[in-house]
């Protein structure tokens, strides 16, 4: 009887603590995903932490030029901004400027092929606990010692990858190759070649390997602020991380994946959380 109680207690902790800790969505929204012509091109991008798809709430990323509060500033310290060029080399000098509700940047497109724009939050320590009075609390970053008397202490790491793709003239795949850390979207279909009515085939990769745990993929079209239901498409990735989707409406879409795995024994980490946010543009037939 006592044992049952203990097991129930543990599974309760697992259920509650494995739930997404950063439930707020993130996105990068590019002004253009496809460009043609020989001239040098520019694309303006915005990024935000927001529950509404492509309606900004809080900035995501800052080069020091914008004013952000200390909570966001701590998150941004763990954020790496990059652009992967069509030849596969990575440019880390991209700078995002924070504004009150979103961050923004310009990138110059001077080569043919596909660019990958990324804001990656490196695995960051997080501890969740209940204060002696029972209220839930958490420490993000280096502060890892809960106050005396805290219960339900759980150690986590959280990591996220927020991305989009831009193609100048002919698409290519060098920038699409998995970098081997965190959750990534790869697969047969090029992310800049999405049209209504065609089946798109994708694959989820975790730390460079196909994601084996069956995982839900959520895909939501732009404009959730102006409709009563989010109408999120849900797809289940198979045991190799593969899934497919047929888009029935053109528009900008946010693809979201969350994954939690248990930490190794004696690693001091109970759960590792990874999230992926990819912005995709779908054109009419």
């Amino acid at each position: 009887m006592k044992r049952t109680f203990k097991i129930l207690g543990l599974s309760f902790i697992f259920l509650t603590q494995s739930a997404p800790l950063f439930a707020h969505g993130r996105y990068i929204l590019p002004s253009h995903t496809q460009l043609s012509g020989e001239d040098l091109k520019q694309v303006t991008l915005v990024a935000s932490i927001s529950n509404d798809v492509f309606h900004p709430d809080k900035p995501l990323g800052n080069n020091g030029g914008g004013e952000v509060n200390s909570f966001l500033s701590n998150i941004f310290k763990t954020l790496k901004a990059s652009v992967t060029l069509p030849n596969g080399t990575v440019n880390n000098t991209i700078e995002w400027q924070a504004f009150a509700r979103q961050s923004s940047t310009d990138i110059t497109i001077d080569k043919p092929g596909t660019y990958r724009v990324s804001l990656v939050q490196q695995p960051t320590r997080l501890v969740t606990f209940k204060k002696p009075d029972g209220t839930p609390s958490r420490f993000f970053g280096n502060q890892q010692t809960p106050p005396p008397g805290a219960t339900n202490v759980v150690h986590h790491t959280t990591a996220s990858r927020t991305e989009t793709f831009i193609t100048h003239n002919t698409p290519n795949r060098s920038a699409l190759i998995s970098v081997g850390s965190g959750l990534e979207l790869v697969g047969e279909t090029h992310p800049n070649d999405l049209f209504v009515g065609e089946t798109a085939h994708f694959q989820l990769i975790l730390d460079g390997k196909p994601l084996k745990d069956p995982t839900a993929v959520h895909i939501t079209r732009d404009g959730t602020l102006h409709r009563n239901q989010r109408n999120t498409l849900e797809r289940q990735a198979d045991a190799l991380g593969n899934f497919s989707v047929i888009f029935i409406k053109a528009g900008m879409y946010l693809l979201e994946v969350e994954h939690t795995r248990k930490g190794a024994k004696n690693s001091g980490i109970d759960f590792h959380h990874n999230t992926l946010y990819v912005t995709l543009e779908v054109f009419p037939e």
Binding site: A23, H24, G25, N51, N228, Q229, R230
Partner: peptide, 8 residues
């Protein structure tokens, strides 16, 4: 509902 829908 936050991150959800709306009814009227």
């Amino acid at each position: 509902r936050e991150a959800g829908g709306r009814d009227f």
